[in-house]
Design a protein around this nucleic acid. Structure first.
Length: 150
DNA sequence: GCCAACGTTGGC
DNA sequence: GCCAACGTTGGC
């Protein structure tokens, strides 16, 4: 899951009560579908810092609550308000995530690109702009190892 | 700040 | 259903 650290970083998540927060503001259908349909309680998730000095994987969090309607879509005061969202049939969903761990160094996007075995990662595909996407187990393990070798 | 690559919107 | 215009993402 990506976030711009200027807006919400892994340190911000850690600072939340119980290290837990809801992942609001997702307004892309594909990303929503991953949250709504694929993410299960207990799943581990990489926290990716985007649009910053060193974009890359900053740490790990865990899904602690499965998807439920994103209430910010219904709040006219919210920057994520969606006038087309219907309370009776919510369009947008979110999950709750909990801080697990912050890496001693960010596994940078450029490091990820250097790894042959990560070549097919969805994150690294041309034109990819999704803010939430699946990571397969091999990719997960490879990235974890990269945190230990530097 | 630039720009490629999307996704969305709305007229037709 | 097509497609131009527009808005957004995100690396550089």
């Amino acid at each position: 899951m990506k976030s711009e650290p200027d807006a919400f970083s892994i340190d911000d998540l850690r600072a939340c009560p119980k290290g837990t927060d809801h992942w609001d503001g997702i307004r892309n259908y594909q990303a929503r579908n991953f949250m709504r349909d694929e993410m299960k309680k207990g799943d581990l998730v990489f926290f990716y810092h985007s649009s910053c000095d060193v974009p890359g994987v900053a740490g790990i969090m865990k899904v602690v609550r499965e998807s439920y309607p994103d209430f910010t879509a219904l709040d006219p005061e919210s920057r994520y308000f969606d006038p087309k969202s219907d309370p009776a049939n919510p369009r947008w969903y979110m999950v709750d995530v909990k801080f697990e761990r912050k890496f001693s160094h960010v596994v940078s996007l450029s490091e990820l690109r250097e790894r042959r075995s990560l070549k097919n990662m969805q994150l690294l595909q041309k034109g990819n702009r999704l803010s939430i996407m699946p990571v397969d187990r091999r990719e997960w393990d490879t990235i974890l190892k990269m945190t230990e070798t530097k």
